[in-house]
């Protein structure tokens, strides 16, 4: 059993997880209503992974995320407004409408532009980590990827180099059991697709309950600590589950109902909420108030984003090469 931190910290984590949940659910409904353009790959169900890993990172630390980036980006401090504006393809979006749902980020808060090529961010994380060391900082890179990425060649090349160069990087596999719609059982013979491969590269690995924000946070402290101290990379494999499908309109017909029920019972937000109440950290009234505040803020930002300016069509011709823009 993990140890409950003091109230401010515990509630801070809950607040962030709840924000991610509300954000994702809001987007899902906007999408169903036909208001939200583009495609969506949602992270609800995996909030404990994002928040547990990122809660204690510094602004100067970097995260590298995937096609399912919202939880990570929000946890790292990318602004809600710039995220929602990007989802709507607006010029105030964090990528000025040029990125979209799979490329959100804000390097000024250490959130590298999200990467929609599975496994593509692992070698980039090695480069970011190398920079942290070359510039003689003790900052670290935390690289998220899914179970599917562990079968990419880039995974092997990045982990091997991170190990031999002892890079300050944490490789975090969010194993949600499915690579898009294919069960990881069909594509990898290992029980722990990332952690079991650690020994192949000489990288210490841990398997963690990815739905327990405190367990993730404790593992993060160990792994980030090693990276900061120059002890090299760690692989964390967080066992988790998507609430939604791989992407828009995916009804998850490939997931057995009992499996879904078993995982939904372990919902990271419901279980943490219950613990906060059971252990007397916070009262129901206080929690409801926090939840209402978050919902109101998201609703207001959605309205803002919907009504904000579309990018000028010809702005598509800008930014192919760097024009000197700042973060």
């Amino acid at each position: 059993m993990t140890k409950m931190p003091e109230k401010e910290r515990a509630v801070g984590m809950y607040r962030r997880m709840y924000q991610i949940r509300q954000y994702e659910e809001t987007i899902y409904y906007l999408f169903l209503e036909g208001i939200m353009p583009g495609t969506i790959h949602q992270s609800h169900g995996q909030e404990a992974c994002a928040v547990g890993m990122i809660y204690d990172l510094r602004k100067e630390d970097y995260i590298l995320t995937t096609h399912r980036p919202a939880g990570h980006d929000l946890a790292k401090g990318v602004s809600l407004r710039s995220m929602l504006c990007e989802m709507f393809g607006k010029s105030e979006g964090c990528c000025k409408g040029k990125g979209g749902a799979m490329h959100t980020g804000d390097l000024s808060v250490g959130a590298v532009t999200a990467n929609a090529i599975v496994g593509g961010n692992l070698p980039i994380a090695a480069g970011v980590a190398l920079r942290c060391r070359m510039m003689k900082t003790d900052n670290v890179a935390v690289c998220f990827f899914g179970d599917g990425a562990s079968n990419e060649g880039a995974f092997h090349e990045a982990l091997n180099a991170a190990a031999v160069w002892k890079l300050p990087v944490v490789y975090v596999c969010e194993n949600n059991l499915y690579s898009a719609t294919t069960s990881i059982r069909l594509t990898c013979s290992l029980e722990h697709v990332a952690a079991d491969r650690g020994s192949a590269y000489g990288i210490p690995s841990e398997v963690v309950d990815g739905n327990d924000v405190l367990a993730v946070n404790e593992a993060a402290a160990r792994a980030v600590g090693r990276a900061r101290n120059g002890e090299g990379p760690t692989i964390l494999e967080l066992k988790t589950y998507r609430i939604g499908g791989h992407s828009r309109n995916d009804a998850c017909g490939y997931r057995p109902e009992e499996e879904e029920q078993e995982w939904f019972a372990k919902d990271p937000i419901h279980t943490f909420r219950k613990r906060l109440l059971d252990e007397g950290v916070i009262t129901e009234e206080e929690l409801v108030k926090i939840e209402e505040e978050i919902t109101e803020e998201i609703d207001a930002e959605v309205e803002y984003a919907k009504n904000s300016k579309d990018p000028a069509p010809e702005s598509a011709l800008r930014d192919v090469y760097w024009e000197g823009g700042t973060l």
């Binding site: 090695a126 480069g127 190398l130 942290c132 880039a154």
Partner: peptide, 12 residues
Amino acid sequence: AGVCVGAGMTGM
């Protein structure tokens, strides 16, 4: 190439 991208985007 990935190291170039990661190091390049962070100032190297």
